[in-house]
């Protein structure tokens, strides 16, 4: 089953002045449970593609369908709500809420979803344990290492059981040890809970771990390989 379906999508910046085609007539399907890396040189359109998949940036042409919903038909408020319920985001710079503790950051999305406090508590405890950050649960982001912050960010993205997780260069700011640990956790979550991960990355360690590697150049797919 396709979780993400992109049909002939293009993204053109400055269409009225100096048009820049960041994504060029691209079609792609991502299925449930995939562990996909989108790779390519800087400026090839990886982040733009992820932003369009996540409903953060509208495409100039084509359509983006997430679990059967054409997101271009949603208004801004519906789209925000759709992201809340269906998509998990992991950013390069972690982007945790600085005034909340690790635990509160993980709870955040579920609280916005108005989940039952008991369900939230159980889920967060489970995630803290699986991410190996139970001892750091009451620390604020500024009191955590980069690797710990990114684990919290992944836990936050996973907490509400989204349809898929978009991770934009998640290991770019991490050292080797933290990267290996994080990748191990994400791969385990992919295996255990069939969570769909889509990464944009330059990192060879992420590429090596990915089951599918899509290579972009000049906004178009130049190769799409399955790694067994």
């Amino acid at each position: 089953m396709n979780v993400i379906e992109l049909k002939n999508i293009s993204k053109i910046y400055n269409p009225d002045t100096i048009p820049v085609r960041a994504v060029n007539n691209l079609s792609l399907q991502i299925e449930q449970g995939e562990f996909t890396a989108i790779v390519g040189p800087s400026g090839c359109g990886k982040t733009t593609l992820l932003n369009m998949m996540g409903g953060l940036d509208p495409c100039t042409q084509g359509s983006v369908t997430i679990s059967g919903v054409a997101i271009s038909t949603l208004n801004e408020s519906e789209l925000t709500d759709f992201r809340l319920k269906n998509i998990g985001f992991v950013f390069q710079a972690y982007n945790l809420i600085p005034v909340l503790t690790a635990r509160e950051n993980i709870e955040f999305i579920m609280v916005l979803q108005k989940e039952d406090p008991k369900v939230i508590g159980d889920r967060v405890d489970n995630l803290l344990k699986r991410m190996g950050i139970t001892e750091q649960k009451d620390r604020r982001p500024s009191e955590l290492s980069g690797g710990q912050q990114q684990r919290v960010a992944v836990a936050r993205a996973l907490a509400s059981h989204p349809k898929f997780i978009l991770a934009d260069e998640p290991t770019a700011n991490l050292d080797s040890e933290a990267t290996a640990g994080l990748l191990e956790i994400m791969a385990q979550m992919n295996k255990d809970e069939a969570v769909t991960f889509v990464f944009s990355t330059h990192d060879q360690r992420v590429i090596d771990k990915a089951k599918r590697v899509i290579t972009l150049n000049d906004g178009a797919i130049v190769s799409d390989e399955i790694h067994l």
């Binding site: 953060l56 925000t80 709500d81 992201r83 319920k85 999305i109 916005l112 979803q113 936050r156």
Partner: peptide, 15 residues
Amino acid sequence: YEFGVLNAIGMTKGN
């Protein structure tokens, strides 16, 4: 930037 992140992860502008 912070509001952009909050909006991206699902917090509406109204919230």
